[in-house]
Write a protein that binds this DNA or RNA. Sequence first.
DNA 1: CGTCTGTATGTAAACGATTACATTCTTGCC
DNA 2: GGCAAGAATGTAATCGTTTACATACAGACG
Lengths: 348, 348
Amino acid sequence: MATIKDVARQASVSVATVSRVFNDTGLVREETSRRVREVAALLRYAPHSGARSLITNRTNTLGVLLPDLYGEFFSELIHGIDLTARKNGYHILVSRSWEGRTEIEEAMRAMRGRVDGLLLMSPDIHRDTLLNLPADLPVVFLCSPSQGHEVDSVTIHNMRGARAMVSHLIAVGHRRIAIIKGSFGNYDAAERLRGYQTALKEAGIEPEPRLERCGDFTEVGGYNAALALLAETNRPTAVFAANDSMAIGALSAFRESGVKVPGDIAVAGFDDIPLARYMDPPLSSVRVPISELGATAVDILLHAITSKNLHTRRHMRVSTEVVIRRSTNGQPAERPPPTTFNRETSSG
Amino acid sequence: MATIKDVARQASVSVATVSRVFNDTGLVREETSRRVREVAALLRYAPHSGARSLITNRTNTLGVLLPDLYGEFFSELIHGIDLTARKNGYHILVSRSWEGRTEIEEAMRAMRGRVDGLLLMSPDIHRDTLLNLPADLPVVFLCSPSQGHEVDSVTIHNMRGARAMVSHLIAVGHRRIAIIKGSFGNYDAAERLRGYQTALKEAGIEPEPRLERCGDFTEVGGYNAALALLAETNRPTAVFAANDSMAIGALSAFRESGVKVPGDIAVAGFDDIPLARYMDPPLSSVRVPISELGATAVDILLHAITSKNLHTRRHMRVSTEVVIRRSTNGQPAERPPPTTFNRETSSG
DNA sequence: CGTCTGTATGTAAACGATTACATTCTTGCC
DNA sequence: GGCAAGAATGTAATCGTTTACATACAGACG
């Protein structure tokens, strides 16, 4: 591979000049610049970013450490992150974080010298808090339990969103409302449960442990939980799933069991993934601006990187929106494409 | 940030020794090694991978350049790539490639010095073929039009899969079969169309241009194309969509129009994304082992990297499987979780 | 005790860029 | 023509590693 020296030699200039041409630092004659570029193109020269980052101490790359890469949620998240990063001239280095705390730390040190900052999503509540971060690597936490105020973070208004959705169910007449919970120990899951419980309490409805079913954020989990609920002697009239995947699994279970949605039972989800509106019946959900979530995190991270000294810690929460579709019975069918409009929209 | 020198000083050894400890090249006394590790931990030392790659000429990172990052397909693809890469001790640097040819080249040079090899998905047929690649960077093409035999590539058995699915439709009695095509100029889309046409020809069915509808691989595209088909005076009895997203859009359109699936019209997709089986009715589709596709590509790339000289170009195709569910009427409902079994499975 | 052998450690030259500083070249003006 | 000023270019130190080679040290052996 051609190096800056090869280009310099061929163009009969010094490496400094070549460098100047490629960073357009000005101060180089038009003709020289042209000659250098020609030679560079000929030699297929591209600056070696490792070498560059060694001296400049910048990589123009952001590390992204996620618990998983699978499914619509992460897909959209990465999309949002990439878009914003690139807009600012940054690349992203994606990695799925391993299980334990030590493994996350391990992954983080592997990023040393590769990235200028880190986006870290580590929703496990029971994980020892506040991993000892390399002092000088800016980190933004995503959807992670609050680590106090010492770190930047972006989270979802989970509690508010869940409460708003359950309140809606109550408003349209439901009293026996079940929840299919998210993964055990997961921060988002815990907050959504809290929102559910809060809404019930506010309406003066007695909580009932048998209506709080375990789930794991997957379709299969939702499917099984739904079957279990059907087996109850005193069935709920509505089910709130802590995410859309589980709600979709539940819809599938109800359909197969001949239980009509929303006639016999109402179903609501959380996230409003693109497919929610294509379900039968279209699924009511709590819209989360996932891509915006990623974008916000990147913005904060970039600020921390570029204004290192005067950056103050930020805690952001992205808002959610309740989107009512037919699965909760409220209104007539929503016609999906080409544009979607939300019947009821309550900030939450 | 602590450097190797700091560690060396604190542990009163030379940098060479520290380096040896961290690369366990042997030849260092047990006690020395322990002392070095202790100091390193204390100082939170992590080797600077830029500096390292500069001298070793290896980054342990693979570049991944995709046309988009959005949706189940890419989600699963990245998942498969990451899994295999990590298993071999590699990171992945993900980027969405820009539009034109020059922009791809631009993105590729940005990867210089950051990656040891490149996975490139560039399904645009009309893009000038065979971008002039930096001679020494191994590249594997994913789902891209054949570039002759000078490059490694992994593609899907699109044509066979599509033909098998359409043949199935014919086998269960359909004669008027429409297709909702994929994006214009897209390689996979073109091949799937070819499979559709081949199956018709094999069955002696006259092709009919009005039944070949344009789509763009999105739900909305499928929805609109489906409505257009309904407007035909002589409606088709089956629709083959070039991917599942469009099939889902079509299902939605039919449902709203009161057209029964599979009673009035059969619907089939391609990809078999996880959601296909949760549709109502569950969607017949051509299963593509997406994650395996990514894994295979990584394997080839790693071989090209590690055995640079004796690596010979490989062209791989991953096989598809026709998965029949209720949307094509063949059989009774398939019960989704916890395990899935495919009624009819024809290699294709 | 000298020598030889092998193990453990140190020294210093790379790797490919950036950039402060030094040097050379133009140009305009007296 | 000489000179100053500014523009263009060159020189060389530097970033944090790895690694070939040199060196030191210990034990074995005659």
